[in-house]
Design a protein around this nucleic acid. Structure first.
Length: 609
RNA sequence: GCCCCCGUAGCUCAAUGGACAGAGCACCAGCCUUCUAAGCUGUUGGUUGUGCGUUCGAAUCGCACCGGGGGUACCA
């Protein structure tokens, strides 16, 4: 029995150990096992339950180590005499004696109910840096698993512009994909394009009536956007235009060949515009689904749902619905899902069903993630439940990754209808110009082509960072001033740290061949930096677990801050001997980690600024 | 009415139930004969919306309330 309990406790400590991921655990794994064993022995001898002691890291103190809070053990001790905190302290002191000082540790202390064991600084530092430098860009990437996930994101409507309000979805989705990949999963990036509906008909009707034969300008997106808002304005303001659109819709429904051809042509113009944006943002997709592809199969599914009694057909007066609450006996939880209009035309929900099925038929998915606006939460919940009611066992693998919208100051929501949108193009152009001015001022001798490249990377990073550095469920308020502020907690700050690291390495000549031994008294800023570097794999898995790039974005900033601090405190090139070697290796490791986080966040790192 | 999200420094936001709640912006004062000052250092700033509860320990978990936003049968 004691043996079994012992093994269980050991597993708790070292069970999740992964040699590629975690340098600190690689080094101290054996020792940790030994310590755990001694703690368990102590517990058994003193009639205390095992498995109550877990290790965490000690809050920054300039030294590394692991800490064991002894409160849970103290609380569980039936023989305790005083209050828990005092008893925890008592136990910590006892354990300190029992454990002694294992190899690789330099100091042990019992303080405030915690048992703290400090690592040998040089050994720890050298190990972290060596592992990062030997693994390079692979550092922070977990071992491949056999899990496959699909992430559906972006989902733009054709014939409409992609604007800043749509940006968060793309940036968030793309970054989540990168992070999931780094956590060992196979990721399929899917994009579901809204290529049919009233907005398309409106656009085409307006085009035929007022712009027949015109070709898009080089800037397809803007051209399409301008025509869209024109069509929308006519629809609401111009006498008779709505009737024209209705008539046009009827012709489309009847299968008018000319309209169909025009639709294919104009849809392509939109797709070309999207492609430009995706290229600019560094996004790509593995699978494109068109809404038009699932319209017919959606209606078939509705028929099946009616036949099987899940759906109620209220036509012609009422729509086809699934009263989920009535079926499940729940009350106002799932409400009523409308899956087909009373006139038999399809809704968003109609097409959502076959799309979900298609995904799982095409791929063996362990998870199907939808990056969609939080306002569609109920809708997503309904879809999932309907698929479950239809008997699809994979329905539970659907996950709605909800995010909050981007609005304008004063809680104004961007709308392509009343011109409150900020076009992506305008934002990028403005930001690039702003960045270019700064580069010009800071680094005037740079080659103009490089200057422009740098400005673009800085501008895009600055735009993307606010979108991923906030928690998914928090509203991002867009305003020009903060979007174009390149100082402080922003992507350019992080990029700048990386440029500084690069600058040191460049001046040092070749890449550091030797790994430092860190056999000198480290500055606090060095210790802090190394500490953060070692945390990267943990941050990646944390961020992947919750689908939260914001975790990693915060980490990137911390890292840059730590590097800037180090940069100011510690000479590298002018240092000598062991110090120089070690610091050079550290700078290289820092650059590896900074670039890795950039990579995962979808931000590009210029080599000069 | 019911459901979901948010509420932390003047503003924008952080903080696997763990040691003293931290950054940025703004304000003020310093630091470029030293690897890029898009940087660094220092000062100021808090009843974590309110009240109960769970816990050795709560910004974090539970319940109630207050305030803001969103959703709630033929938009997406």
């Amino acid at each position: 029995m004691a043996q079994r309990r012992l093994r269980k406790a050991e597993n708790k400590l070292v069970g999740c150990y992964n040699p590629v991921d975690k340098p600190e655990e690689t080094m101290f794994e054996d020792v940790k096992g030994q310590i755990a064993q001694r703690i368990d022995e102590f517990c058994l001898q003193n009639d205390l339950p095992t498995g109550k002691v877990e290790f965490r890291s000690i809050p920054f103190s300039g030294e590394w180590g692991m800490a064991a809070p002894l409160f849970p053990l103290a609380a569980a001790d039936t023989n305790k005499t005083g209050p828990v905190p005092q008893h925890a302290q008592f136990l910590a002191e006892k354990l300190k004696e029992v454990i002694g000082l294992p190899a690789g540790f330099t100091r042990a202390e019992a303080v405030k109910g915690y048992l703290n064991l400090y690592f040998d600084t040089a050994l720890y530092a050298a190990s972290v840096v060596e592992q990062i430098n030997s693994q390079g860009p692979r550092f922070g990437t977990a071992q491949p698993t056999d899990e496959t996930v699909m992430v559906e994101y972006s989902n733009p409507n054709t014939h409409k512009p992609l604007h800043v309000g749509h940006l968060r979805n793309v940036i968030l989705g793309g970054s989540v994909c990168n992070i999931l990949e780094a956590s060992g999963k196979t990721v399929i990036r899917a994009n579901y394009i809204g290529d049919i509906g009233l907005h398309v008909i409106k656009w085409m009707c307006n085009y035929e009536m007022y712009h027949a034969g015109e070709q898009p300008a080089a800037d397809e997106m803007r051209w399409m956007a301008d025509l869209y808002s024109e069509a929308d304005r006519r629809f609401h303001e111009q006498e008779g235009f709505e009737d024209e659109v209705r008539a046009y819709f009827a012709r489309w429904d009847a299968g008018d060949e000319h309209i169909h051809d025009l639709w294919l042509q104009t849809r392509q113009w939109s797709m070309d515009g999207f492609a430009q944006v995706y290229e600019l943002l560094g996004e790509h997709f593995d699978r494109i689904y068109f809404e038009s592809d699932v319209e017919d199969s959606g209606k078939e599914i509705v028929d099946r749902l009616i036949e099987s009694g899940i759906a109620t057909d209220g036509r012609p007066e009422n729509p086809v619905i699934v009263d989920i609450d009535a079926i499940l006996g729940t009350k106002e939880e799932y409400r009523v899902a409308v899956i087909l209009r009373s006139d038999g035309t399809s809704l968003y929900a109609t097409k959502e069903l076959p799309l979900a099925i298609m995904k799982f038929e095409e791929y063996e998915l362990d998870q199907s993630i939808y990056v969609i606006d939080v306002r569609q939460s109920l809708h997503m919940k309904q879809m999932r439940k309907i698929l479950e009611l239809m008997g699809y066992p994979w329905a539970t693998k659907i996950h709605h990754l909800a995010y909050e919208i981007v609005n304008l100051p004063g809680n104004v929501i961007m709308s392509s209808r009343d011109g409150t949108v900020v076009l992506l193009d305008d934002l990028v152009r403005e930001a690039t110009q702003r960045a270019l001015d700064v580069v010009h001022e800071k680094n005037p001798e740079l080659d103009p082509a490089i200057m422009l490249d740098v400005a673009q990377k800085v501008a895009l990073g600055a735009i993307k960072y606010p979108m991923i550095s906030r928690e998914n469920t928090k509203i991002v308020t867009f305003d020009w001033e903060s979007a174009l502020d390149f100082n402080g907690q922003s992507a350019p700050y992080i990029q700048y740290a990386n440029v500084r690291a690069n600058s040191i390495l460049r001046r040092a000549g070749s890449q550091p061949q030797e790994q430092g031994a860190f056999n000198y008294t480290l500055e606090p800023s060095e210790v802090n930096l190394i500490e953060l570097l070692s945390k990267l794999p943990d941050e990646v898995s944390k961020s992947a677990k919750d689908f939260k790039p914001s975790t990693l974005a915060a980490y990137a900033y911390e890292l840059a801050k730590a590097f800037n601090d180090f940069y100011n405190q510690c000479q590298v090139l002018k240092a000598e001997g062991e110090v120089r070697t070690s610091r050079l290796a550290l700078v290289h490791a820092a650059k590896v980690c900074l670039e890795k986080t950039f990579n995962l966040l979808g931000i590009q790192a210029p080599q000069v600024m």
